[in-house]
C-alpha cells in the first residue's frame, strides 16, 4: 500500500488548516448567525466579510499577543469590546459598498463582535507565535468567507435569480424560501455533507491510485528517508 498520494493530500490539508480541513462554518459550525442570515445575497456576504476582516483578524492577533495573562471571565468581555471598537470604522467602510445594507442585515452586522468564531479563535491562539496567530486568523477568515460567498451566490440565484443585484436567470420559478433561515440551514447541511463526501472520495481514490503506482517509488521513498 503506497501512501505517497495520501501523505501529499494530508500535507495540503494541514497547510490550509482553516479553509479545507477545519472549516469554521462547515465542520465546526461556528459563526452561525453571520453565515445563515446575511448570506441571503452577495451584497450582504461581502459587507460581513469585509467587516470581519477589519475587526476579527486584528482582535485575534491582539489576543495572540496578550496571551493568557487575562483571566477567562475578563477575556470574554475585553476582546468583544475591542472588536466592537473596530466595528465602528468598519461600518463606514461598508457604507460605501452599498448604502441600504444596514436595514437588511441590521442586527447581524453588530453581532460580528461577539460571534462564536471569535470566542473559538481567542481560546485557540493562546500560546502561539505572532506569525502563526496571524496566519491562523487569516485562514479562518478566508475559510468562512469562501463558504459564505458560495452560499450567498446560490441562495441569491435561487431566490431572485440575480447576482449582486443584476438579474441573470429571468424565467426560472423563484424559490423565496432560499433567502429565509431554513434555506440557509438546509443548504449548509448539504454543503457540509458534500465537503465530507469529496474528502472521502479523494482519500479513497488516492488510496486506490496509490496501490497501483509502480513499486520503485516506495523503494526510493525508503532510501530517501
Amino acid at each position: 500500500m503506497n501512501l505517497t498520494l495520501v501523505r501529499k493530500y494530508n500535507k495540503l490539508l494541514r497547510k490550509t488548516d482553516g479553509i479545507l480541513l477545519h472549516n469554521p462554518l462547515l465542520t465546526l459550525g461556528l459563526a452561525l448567525p453571520l453565515a445563515i442570515i446575511p448570506s441571503y445575497g452577495l451584497i450582504g456576504t461581502a459587507a460581513v466579510s469585509v467587516a470581519m476582516l477589519v475587526c476579527f483578524v486584528p482582535t485575534v492577533f491582539l489576543s495572540g499577543l496578550i496571551g493568557n495573562r487575562l483571566p477567562l471571565w475578563l477575556r470574554v468581555v475585553v476582546y468583544p469590546v475591542v472588536s466592537c471598537l473596530l466595528l465602528i470604522p468598519a461600518r463606514y467602510l461598508v457604507q460605501n459598498i452599498s448604502p441600504l445594507i444596514f436595514d437588511t442585515i441590521g442586527v447581524y452586522f453588530s453581532l460580528i463582535c461577539v460571534n462564536s468564531l471569535l470566542m473559538y479563535s481567542i481560546e485557540k491562539v493562546q500560546n502561539k507565535k505572532p506569525v502563526a496567530v496571524l496566519t491562523f486568523a487569516l485562514r479562518q477568515w478566508l475559510g468562512a468567507c469562501l463558504i459564505a460567498f458560495l452560499c450567498g451566490a446560490i441562495r441569491e440565484l435561487l431566490a431572485n435569480g440575480s447576482l449582486w443585484g443584476f438579474v441573470i436567470l429571468k424565467d426560472l420559478p423563484r424559490l423565496p424560501v432560499a433567502q429565509m433561515a431554513l434555506g440557509g440551514f438546509i443548504l449548509f447541511g448539504f454543503l457540509a455533507a458534500l465537503c465530507r463526501l469529496i474528502h472521502r472520495l479523494i482519500l479513497s481514490f488516492s488510496l486506490k491510485a496509490g496501490s497501483n503506482l509502480p513499486q520503485s517509488s516506495t523503494e526510493r521513498g525508503e532510501a530517501g528517508k
Binding site: 462547515l26 465542520t27 459550525g29 433567502q179 431554513l182 440551514f185 447541511g189 448539504f190 457540509a192 472521502r200
Partner: peptide, 27 residues
C-alpha cells in the same frame, strides 16, 4: 456523509421550517 454536523444543520432547518409557519414569508 451526513453523520454529525450536516444532519444537525438539516434538522435545524426543518424545525425552522415548522416555525416559519407562524411568520409566513416575511423575513
Amino acid at each position: 456523509t451526513f453523520r454529525g454536523l450536516p444532519i444537525t444543520f438539516i434538522y435545524l432547518g426543518i424545525v425552522s421550517l415548522a416555525l416559519f409557519g407562524l411568520l409566513g414569508n416575511q423575513l
